[in-house]
Design a protein around this nucleic acid. Structure first.
Lengths: 215, 215
DNA sequence: TAGATTGTTAATCGATTAACAATC
DNA sequence: TAGATTGTTAATCGATTAACAATC
């Protein structure tokens, strides 16, 4: 239990641990070693032990980690032992898809409001939520105490939406638009940009694909 | 032009550079310095110069980088100077959303086939493509020379789909399911798992949120 | 020429991994 | 007790940044 600064790499692995632990729990596995976890998650066991040890002594020498206890601890570390209200802007296909995931996120995060700029989308229903106009954003974020904003609008709109989220007082933003957002330093932004993933994949393709016909 | 191994971190920045360069080009900016780029992308200029220098001497001292030329070079490095055929499994909301992005990816990647296991989805149209049954996957991947597979199915199905993609001969997989896939070492997998992004964001929320009422 | 900016080397910083005493 | 596995220190590895000669 030190007061070290935890690197982002560590923080990003915690949800991966959590997810696998939940699966183990469902399979009624009671205990797991860093060895086992590493095997499943393609990670070095020492790294897993070190990651967890930043936050406490969760394991037992000679035994491993109690699955339920570790779940509880990671939930606490990630602040997922409370339900976090989330807002989403952009009621397109992607926004829709994310709303459906709410089921999966259940006890951890809940999308409590959806906004869109397009007239035609407003008042349509997504997952029991009425899509609201952009003018509702700031008051609704405040009223519903929304802490995380999700942006699934076109790249050209994303900065504007981010500005409004910031003004309304969200603490963090998950941005799906392929754009680097400018926000104050106290706001955390993660970018979930699948074009980056996809384009970087191309780099690893073999060279001898169907070449451009030799000119 | 060395034969060094390029780290994944470098490769992942290339699409980010490319994207911003395309925007500059559209704004008819002719030349850009590592300084400018760094500012816009929140990166250290030295890092940008180093990244690019792995692949060649693209800049001019005292001037910077020619926007069009650098675009062309990065495209080549990423193998995006050819159209790469992509297949997608999972015609849900997320799959739909990705298909629509094809417009954005235009000259680089093209989703040429969509598959789904659900009877009701088959033969529906997405972006001018008829959704095909899973039994078509292997023959179609081969026939259309699909090189990258995208997986947007539930976590429980993802490994099975990956296995089929691998058997059919794709070289890389972009996986949206929250699961670690097992594939042979010659297949590249990127995981675009937004639950990880979202959960790790929660870590950075302030502690003084609406606490669980003190027991 | 003077100012700007690259490509690259050297210095720094940080993250991963190996190793092992402690102990269940 | 013997075997297993943690938590942690030390060693390694790799990535980022600073600095600067070269040069447009």
């Amino acid at each position: 239990m030190k007061a070290l600064k935890i690197s982002e790499a560590v923080v990003r692995r915690l949800p991966v641990y959590l997810r696998h632990l939940l699966e183990l729990k469902q399979r009624e596995v009671l205990t797991v070693s860093s060895q086992d976890l590493g095997q499943k998650l393609n990670l070095n066991p020492a790294q897993i032990r070190k990651d967890l040890a930043y936050f406490g002594d969760f394991g037992r020498k000679g035994i491993g980690y109690d699955v339920s206890y570790l779940i509880q601890q990671i939930r606490h570390i990630l602040k997922l032992d409370q339900v976090i209200p989330v807002g989403l802007v952009g009621a397109g296909k992607l926004g829709h898809a994310l709303c459906n995931y709410t089921v999966y996120l259940k006890d951890n995060m809940k999308i409590v409001a959806v906004f869109d700029a397009q007239e035609s989308k407003i008042n349509t229903e997504i997952n029991n939520l009425k899509v609201q106009p952009m003018s509702d954003l700031i008051p609704t974020v405040r009223e519903k105490q929304i802490r995380i904003g999700i942006i699934t609008v076109p790249a050209t709109e994303a900065q504007h939406v981010a500005d409004q989220f910031v003004e309304a007082g969200v603490e963090a933003i998950l941005n799906f638009a392929p754009v680097i957002l400018r926000v104050p330093p106290n706001i955390r932004v993660h970018t979930a940009d699948f074009t980056t993933d996809l384009f970087s994949l191309a780099y690893y393709l073999s060279d001898n694909g169907k070449e451009v016909p030799a000119e």
